[in-house]
Computed example of a mutant assay.
Amino acid sequence: MVFACGASTMWARIFTPDAEIMALTAAALPILGLCELGNCPQTVACGVVRGTARPTTAANVNLGAFYVVGTPVAVGLAFYVGVGFSGLWIGLLAAQICCAGLMLYVVGTTDWDYQARRAQMLTHSGGPGPTSETIAAIDPSLLLPEGDADDNENNHQNIDNENEPLICISVT
């Protein structure tokens, strides 16, 4: 953020002598710097949510924040309110703030005891494997419908399916 704000008047000079582009860059870089402040907690919280095997939750928060909040704010400010180019960046800032807030809310309201039990069940740690009763106590939605259970002695859902990874890695 400090770099973006400090270099806002000089950055465009490296690439062009056009005064209009330099003015737009000088206006946008401080907003971009603020976006990076929102990006830090958002990225960490998103990693925590994905690390608890809830990539759908993380994806939904990101989609909602950027497409339901950020895009309308950006388009509204840039084209209807008349803020122009900076309005697009303010829309990104609004999306970052919304996403960071929602991600921090999700992490802050996470039941960590439940997540620890769920992690043990998903990794089969702490014993020979979960029984149907253990799975039902942790999360009934993980149970297979009647007649669809595996043929193993514990009668539990095979969560190690190669076609459905539990951990997603994202580079942001």
Rank of each mutant, 00 (worst) to 15 (best):
G76E: 12
A58C: 03
P41K: 11
A136D: 11
V171R: 07
I97M: 12
A19W: 00
C40H: 05
T172N: 09
C168R: 05
L34D: 08
Y114A: 02
A4F: 12
N155G: 06
V83D: 04
M1G: 15
I97T: 15
I21W: 04
Y114H: 15
L102A: 14
G82S: 07
N62Y: 01
A59V: 13
L102Q: 02
V83K: 08
C168F: 02
H124F: 06
A95V: 02
A4G: 01
V49E: 05
A78I: 04
V61I: 15
L29V: 05
F3C: 02
C35T: 10
F85Q: 04
V68N: 03
A137W: 01
G47F: 00
F3Y: 13
E162F: 08
N62G: 05
P72R: 11
P41V: 14
V61D: 08
Q42T: 03
T56H: 04
A27C: 01
A59R: 05
C5F: 08
P55G: 11
A119M: 10
A4K: 09
A28I: 13
T123N: 15
T57D: 02
T52P: 00
A19E: 15
I31D: 03
Y105G: 01
P128F: 03
F79M: 05
D150F: 01
G70L: 00
G38F: 00
V81M: 11
F3L: 14
V107Y: 02
Q115A: 05
G127L: 10
L32H: 08
V49I: 15
M22T: 12
S125E: 14
N155D: 14
C168H: 09
A116S: 13
G87K: 11
W89S: 02
N39S: 03
P17T: 14
S132D: 10
I90N: 02
L32I: 09
W11Q: 06
V68M: 13
A53D: 05
G87F: 13
I14M: 14
R13N: 14
A95F: 07
A78M: 07
G87P: 04
V171F: 03
N154F: 06
G82V: 12
L122M: 15
Q42V: 00
V106K: 09
A45K: 01
N154G: 00
Y67G: 04
N152S: 12
N62L: 10
T110F: 01
P55Q: 14
G87Y: 11
F3E: 03
T25K: 04
T56A: 13
V68F: 11
G87C: 06
M22F: 00
C98I: 02
L92A: 09
A149V: 13
L142A: 01
G126P: 10
N154Q: 05
N39G: 12
L166A: 10
C98Q: 02
Q96P: 00
L142I: 11
F66D: 01
Q157R: 15
G33I: 11
L37D: 10
H156M: 03
T56N: 10
N154I: 05
A4R: 11
